[in-house]
Design a protein around this nucleic acid. Structure first.
Lengths: 190, 190
DNA sequence: CATATAAGTGGAGGGTTCCTCCGTTTATCG
DNA sequence: CGATAAACGGAGGAACCCTCCACTTATATG
């Protein structure tokens, strides 16, 4: 479901020739490493060097720095979307909670990637859509069980949680507490 | 109150000589303009040019780009802190709500300034402290009136609100709705 | 297998921005 | 007014960005 949009984009962008595909993958791997180590401002020439590839090859595959950041980001979002399936066995409210917690952890860790990238880009929109599709069933289940107020939509929830995840420089305990407060507002008004 | 820490920092950093102080102020003004116009990546030499000052003067006052961003940021935070006084005449819950809305509007508008700046820096910490001191009386009043659950602290609230403010690419309506949901969780549990 | 061809490749190089160094200017104080 | 310490400007080397083009190679086809 998510994969239709996302993988379509991936498949579309990935080069067709064997050697080119090898370089493409190598670049993403090198970029992930460099970004983690030096931040999103890591020199592109350094990334190309690590991938054992000329600078022109990098630019051919990723015309802008943001395109590269997004491609790294993409793979990780897919993992979180898939995690929505792993909580299906839990009770409605607990399942929703568990998955949202996972989203917070994930987005928080990769915050450095997200900030500074154009949040209106196509790839980013696709990621959001993927998260919506992954989370919607969990929300609906909780609403059907009368545990969550019926007037909230999945994109409200995702954005709320994403916002909390973006909070910098705080302990994990505090972030959990804040998340709990916010999600209390989600519960069915008595 | 807030001003003790904040202004102490400001006074500390501000040069003592008349001409130097003039340049310092000119640089901040030019920086505010340039950042608004070209983003936080605006060429520092352009900023120096606009301030009618050599590039070395810029670097002497603000050794890094972040230092400059922070200084611009600082002045604006003070304005929000002062706004806490302007809502004192409202009822407890409404006063808290009004001020938090103001914080969201403010931080949302200046998000471009905040992201990309080191959130653990001294200046940033001072700003947070200022917001805490400004907001604490509002929160305590609402708690005393039994309108807000007693187990939340002001820094939870500020961070929660700051997180929501940081959400990108959404309408003002949605942001208000999300804020309302989150603040519902703040209310005294029945 | 041979070979045509389109896709892919690397790196030189011009342009921009960063940031330091140092000789000159100027505010301040006795 | 003169000494002196603080502040100043801009030249210039280094890092990085990104385009252009001559060369290489995977793949499809006869």
């Amino acid at each position: 479901m998510t994969e239709t949009t996302t993988l379509a984009e991936l498949a579309l962008r990935r080069p067709g020739r064997a050697d080119a595909r090898r370089n493409y993958d190598g670049l993403i791997a090198a970029a992930r490493l460099s970004f983690a180590e030096l931040g999103t401002e890591a020199p592109l020439e350094e990334i190309a060097r690590r991938a054992d590839v000329g600078i022109a090859t990098l630019y051919r595959n990723f015309p802008t720095r943001e395109a590269l950041i997004e491609s790294v980001y993409l793979e990780e979002v897919i993992a979180v979307c898939n995690a929505a399936g792993e909580v299906a066995h839990l009770a409605p409210w607990e399942a929703l909670l568990a998955w949202l917690r996972r989203v917070v952890t994930y987005v928080g860790a990769k915050r450095v990637l997200v900030e500074g990238l154009n949040r209106d880009s196509n790839t980013f929109k696709a990621c959001r859509l993927g998260l919506y599709e992954a989370g919607a069933p969990l929300l609906e289940r909780a609403q059907a069980a009368k545990l969550v107020r019926p007037d909230v939509a999945i994109d409200d929830v995702i954005r709320l949680v994403a916002g909390i995840a973006g909070i910098g420089s705080t302990t994990e305990e505090q972030r959990d507490r804040i998340l709990a407060i916010a999600l209390d507002g989600l519960k069915r008004a008595a």
